[in-house]
């Protein structure tokens, strides 16, 4: 054959986010292997929405996710632990408001 065939791109890892109901945020549900974006979306549908879990799917190449460094968790997160006043628990919510 004379023509050049495009080789299928190598398999990569994708993270899957599903929005289960209108008004909710997309939630991370797992990861999968796929060759490209379209196949990743299909695989996400096939793997993670079999029991009616989803209204919307996001897939993101895992390598594009920028993660915090676990060794920096002291610097990043511990300062917040001593600041209980940031939780809005000191306000009285009028009963008419109901569940916020």
């Amino acid at each position: 054959m004379n023509k050049t065939l495009k080789a299928t791109p190598p398999v990569q890892l994708w993270e899957v986010f599903i929005r289960s109901r209108s008004g909710l945020a997309h939630k991370h549900v797992g990861s999968l292997h796929a060759e490209d974006a379209e196949l990743a979306l299909q695989a996400a549908r096939n793997l993670f929405t079999r029991r009616g879990e989803g209204l919307s799917i996001w897939v993101v190449p895992s390598h594009l996710i920028i993660a915090s460094d676990p060794s920096e968790k002291g610097m990043l997160f511990e300062p917040a632990l001593s600041k209980a006043y940031r939780h809005p628990t000191f306000y009285n919510v009028p009963e008419e408001v109901g569940h916020m």
Binding site: M1, L5, K6, A7, E35, N46
Partner: peptide, 22 residues
């Protein structure tokens, strides 16, 4: 409709893939 979409994408990728898959 989904079966058609799923298989179409694979036919394209395998046909226009490596010489062996083609």
């Amino acid at each position: 409709a989904y079966h058609l979409r799923y298989t179409s994408e694979w036919v394209i990728r395998l046909g226009d893939g490596t010489p062996k898959s083609h």
